[in-house]
Design a protein around this nucleic acid. Sequence first.
DNA 1: AACTAAGCCTACTCGCCAGTAGGTAAGCGG
DNA 2: CCGCTTACCTACTGGCGAGTAGGCTTAGTT
Lengths: 223, 223
Amino acid sequence: MSEESAGEQRSPERARRLPRAVRERQILDAAVQVFSRHGYHSASMDEISDVAGVSKPMIYTYLGSKEDLFGQCIRREATRLLEAIQDGIKPDLPPDMQLWHGLRSFYRFVAEYRESWTVLHRQALTVGGSFATEITDMRTRAIELVAALVVSAGTRKGLGEQAEFSGAGLSAALVGAAESLADWALDHPDVSDGVLASWLMNLVWLGFNDLVEGEIWKPSTAE
Amino acid sequence: MSEESAGEQRSPERARRLPRAVRERQILDAAVQVFSRHGYHSASMDEISDVAGVSKPMIYTYLGSKEDLFGQCIRREATRLLEAIQDGIKPDLPPDMQLWHGLRSFYRFVAEYRESWTVLHRQALTVGGSFATEITDMRTRAIELVAALVVSAGTRKGLGEQAEFSGAGLSAALVGAAESLADWALDHPDVSDGVLASWLMNLVWLGFNDLVEGEIWKPSTAE
DNA sequence: AACTAAGCCTACTCGCCAGTAGGTAAGCGG
DNA sequence: CCGCTTACCTACTGGCGAGTAGGCTTAGTT
């Protein structure tokens, strides 16, 4: 229950006197974990310090206020995600193959770092203020990236302004579909990233191709 | 600045001595507004009472604790949304037309009651506990509903088990796309609900049709 | 007029949690 | 062995916000 003597180390896990960089990583890891479980507001610094195996003042001296801490989490995980996707993409491939590789990398990342994904997707928007806009901006960039692919594919097939016009909306829908499917995949770990990406490609890309080729769905009966 | 005399009414807006039912509506309206702006945790009962033009104890006597209040908001808005969609659907139409009408109603609702949508979509998940599961369940029902349409359309065209298998994932993607497009539409109020619904139908339904008919996208170059 | 009850308020308590003050222990250079 | 720094802790404060005690006022009823 209590320490046996003064010289006894508390537990085999609790390492002591580590260099600052290591502690910072431990704290960030713990923070991501706790934030992903409870969200920003319900997460307490006490729990984070507990999980990190460190006392609360350490967090403040190393990483600043709760808001600072959250910001660092968001930025670290966002960078990880973007790099993971970037690494998967081969820029000289045709648009559909780029999208395909990007999606696969995305689903691989989500499966491997589900807490990162949860923090970015669910929790970051609830803080309001600068983080919300930061995340929204990042998401907007993702949408624009996809839109560029879509429009490029569209113009390549001879579709001009119309592709640009509805491209933004379609890309927003695509990104939303991808995110939603990611959440779904969290509950179905047996479905591989290749299958997930294929589903989306078949849904969206085929639909988009039809659209480009002039085949169009419209309400069948009068209004 | 201050009231002029004892008998003076505070402001022309501040109505006094209204029946309970009216006050309850005012409070719920205010609560939805405040919750949609700040989220559950950052919203304070003081602000809600302020917006409602009522003192805090009234909220507690009429509608209970903060959690109770939030629950009532969620349930009221969810009911509204579901009824709006239900009203738009004609059950004897073919699957694609049902989906089309459902989508249009959905986008009409989101445009008209954007705060309701925000609370349901963004904030409700951040509370954790019973509300999160409640919302998730509702969303799951929506997905299943869509899945039923998709599978029905698939089997109608002669596709059997395969439609059922991937139907769940595809429906999750579709619902996510619809939600994401709803968010996008909030920033583009000039795009009508018909156009939004058409985009989704063209993306998803055409893609799905292709899939059913055996046309399939797959990676072009070796892996 | 007298009584009742419904509507409504001001002004408090109390717990939780972000943030801090001030101290101990361990490595290290002299 | 003596200071000096870096790593790290326990134990507090202060404020914010959920929830409440208790009372005042006016509409309606007898």
